[in-house]
């Protein structure tokens, strides 16, 4: 880890002012940043600690769930209103990482978690995400864990977060705060960028801009929701494939569906075509299979991850069946 200086601002504006310059990095839970610094992938000159900032509240109102960006994964997962009205969020959180990591990691930080691609995290390899223009050996290398959707000739790294998959399905909006107190809102679906030919640019965040809250609209679909994660190991592993499903049922008919999947995309992968194919249909295996068949649309699998095309559909059908039941 390279040496850095440490700053612990007392409020957001001081933090934003400090972090707006190059070479600065916010630290919240630190669970990913610390790994990246130890692996020499991140080399900040200064760390700006968000510990003193007040964004830890979890507020479950009638219209929305408002998650402070510094709320921990553990606290959100354990919140009774989250489990009751947004079960997909609680389930995604409890399927994430380990209890220790969930005690540290935060909502905002998790949106910024970087890929687990082994080529990205080892400076002994070339990587376009880490060193633009150096090449992507993963595309023709060890790619079993990498994305089949949203990749480019420059990068097929999977977005690793389970939580982001659940939140993007529920139309979550991020509240951002920038220089001079300016605030804006960005839909989570628009927050992460596809790699294209700039895989090192992962989000729409401006320098110094800070995530302050994640706002999840309440809905009937959110209440009937669930998360299914498929993996090799029984626990403490990133997803091979995962599905976040939220359904609003009218009798047996699907009034609304929100679907996103993890482990398959270069960003948390929302599936509007599948949602459209489900709406208005009788919930059941026939509709689920027909809709799921559209899930891999546009997939460009590599040699080792081609199985995800089929696994993605089967995972989605199972998640739909479970949530509809």
């Amino acid at each position: 880890m390279q040496s850095f200086s440490y700053l612990r601002p007392a409020d957001a504006d001081a933090a934003i002012a400090a972090a707006a310059q190059p070479g600065k990095k916010y630290i919240a839970g630190g669970t990913d940043l610390m790994q990246l610094m130890k692996d020499d992938v991140e080399r900040p000159a200064q760390i700006v600690d968000l510990d003193a900032l007040p964004y830890t509240k979890i507020e479950a109102g009638p219209d929305a769930l408002r998650l402070g960006a510094l709320a921990t994964m553990s606290d959100v997962a354990a919140h009774p209103e989250v489990a009751r009205k947004y079960p997909v969020i609680a389930q995604a959180l409890l399927a994430s990482a380990s209890p220790q990591l969930r005690n540290m990691a935060t909502m905002g930080g998790n949106m910024l978690q970087r890929t687990r691609c082994g080529y990205f995290r080892d400076t002994g390899f070339a990587c376009n995400k880490r060193e633009p223009g150096s090449g992507c050996p993963a595309i023709h290398g060890q790619n079993r864990l990498l994305a089949i959707l949203g990749g480019s000739g420059h990068c097929i790294a999977t977005h690793p977060s389970d939580l982001a998959v659940a939140l993007v399905a529920l139309d979550t909006v991020l509240e951002l705060r920038g220089a001079n107190g300016a605030t804006r809102q960005v839909a989570l679906g628009d927050f992460h960028k596809l790699p294209g030919d700039t895989p090192h640019i992962e989000t729409v965040l401006q320098p110094g801009e800070l995530i302050t809250a994640l706002v999840v609209p309440a809905s009937a679909a959110a209440r009937r929701s669930g998360y299914l994660k498929v993996r090799d190991r029984a626990s403490f592993e990133f997803a091979l494939v995962s599905a976040a499903v939220a359904l609003d049922l009218d009798g047996g008919v699907i009034r609304d569906a929100r679907i996103a999947m993890g482990g398959v995309g270069t960003k948390p992968w929302r599936l509007p075509a599948v949602e459209g194919a489900l709406r208005g249909h009788q919930a059941g295996d026939v509709a689920f299979a027909a809709a799921a068949a559209q899930a891999p649309e546009g997939a460009m699998p590599a040699v080792q991850n081609a199985f995800k095309v089929k696994l993605m559909q089967k995972t989605l059908v199972r998640a739909l069946r479970t949530v509809a039941a």
Binding site: M34, Q100, L101, N103
Partner: peptide, 26 residues
Amino acid sequence: DRGSCGACTVHVDGRRVNACLTLAIR
């Protein structure tokens, strides 16, 4: 030293955390 094994688990303010991913200064 990367939060993947739990051997460094300690309690900070009563919660279990990975000491390897925690800066001492914090």
